Simulated assay, not measured.
Amino acid sequence: MRYLILGCGWVGEFVAKLWLEEGHEVWASTTTEEKYHRLVADGIFVFKQNFDEQATPAIDLPTDFDYILVSIPATNKSTQDELTSRFIRVCDFLSGVKYQKMIFLSSIGIYPDVSREIDEDTFEDEELQAKLLSAEKAISRFPRTHIYRLGGLFGQNRIFAKYFQSKVCSTGDQPANFIHLEDVAALIRAGFIKPLQHTLYNVVCPQHPSKKDVILASAHKYGFEQPSAFIAGASFQKIVKSTRLQNDLNYTFQYESPLDF
């Protein structure tokens, strides 16, 4: 199989190495010289491409892939104009290649902060975060494309307690809508090789303990300092469900709960 990863960040690099171990051919874009050389050393066919700039694609890039993973970020840190320009260039690039299936990595940050259980059909478009939605709609115009809305992503050196050492935590009462890197990678790989019945999927652990409990569990497990205090803050009870993806792929999570991270 020949895979293409556009925007080979933390998730992309992890998945790329798994595909290489399986004997697949992997191509990937990056924006930095340092990552370019690191990915080349791993055996990945790498090309530098910054979709915030008008760049010329690599001359030797194939035009035919089996599967494409798009992991170009769309965040609130960017302006709408910046995101529009970025994804116009991404779409221009994609229009020049052939593929069997494509997965775009989005975020559950697209959902409003409300106290309710949320699935993929809970909200109308006008209720969703406009910037993230614009990126999803740009990519979803392509056929055989599926969108994964990822929860808070942890694993390897990303440990929740690390970010609250000796700090005041005001979000401890909120449910954790998290996902482990290894489950994300497994769901991406399964999503390419197995049939997917829907366009849109949430990717979140089935269990939703409080963030306070996750902080305390990971602090104990990895030896981090606990927060200096937990105080009452914005305590909306937002729970994002990923039942659709579990059912479509008949998938059993490696990490059912963020307490296991």
Rank of each mutant, 00 (worst) to 15 (best):
I5M: 03
L6W: 06
C8I: 01
W10T: 03
V11D: 06
A16S: 15
A16Y: 13
L18H: 14
E21D: 14
G23D: 11
H24L: 14
H24A: 15
W27M: 01
W27L: 09
A28C: 08
S29I: 09
T32Q: 08
R38S: 11
R38W: 13
L39G: 06
A41I: 03
G43T: 02
I44Y: 14
V46N: 04
V46S: 11
F47Y: 15
K48D: 04
K48N: 02
D52H: 02
E53S: 12
Q54T: 14
Q54V: 15
A55P: 01
T56L: 00
P62Y: 07
D64Q: 13
D66W: 09
V70S: 02
T75V: 01
N76E: 14
K77D: 09
S78L: 10
T79W: 01
Q80V: 07
D81T: 10
R89V: 11
V90H: 00
V90F: 00
D92P: 08
G96K: 09
K98P: 09
M102P: 02
I103S: 02
L105K: 03
S107C: 13
S107I: 05
I108E: 00
I110N: 09
D113S: 13
D113I: 05
S115G: 12
E120A: 04
D121T: 08
T122E: 14
E124Q: 08
E127H: 13
L128H: 10
A135F: 01
K137V: 11
K137P: 02
A138T: 08
I139P: 02
I139S: 03
R141P: 00
R144C: 14
T145K: 09
H146V: 12
I147T: 13
Y148Q: 03
R149Y: 01
L150G: 07
L153S: 13
G155K: 02
Q156I: 00
N157Q: 14
R158V: 11
I159P: 00
F160K: 07
F160R: 04
V168N: 11
V168F: 10
A176H: 01
A176W: 08
N177T: 07
I179T: 04
E182K: 07
A186M: 12
A186G: 12
I188H: 11
G191R: 10
F192N: 07
P195Q: 05
H198S: 15
Y201M: 04
V204W: 05
C205K: 02
C205D: 09
P209K: 10
P209H: 05
S210P: 04
K211W: 07
S218C: 02
A219K: 08
H220V: 04
P227F: 03
P227N: 09
A229L: 01
I231Q: 10
G233H: 08
A234D: 14
F236H: 14
I239P: 10
I239Q: 12
I239A: 00
V240G: 02
K241L: 13
R244Y: 03
L245V: 09
D248S: 04
F253P: 03
F253C: 05
Y255P: 02
Y255D: 03
Y255N: 00
S257H: 06
P258L: 05
D260S: 10
D260H: 08
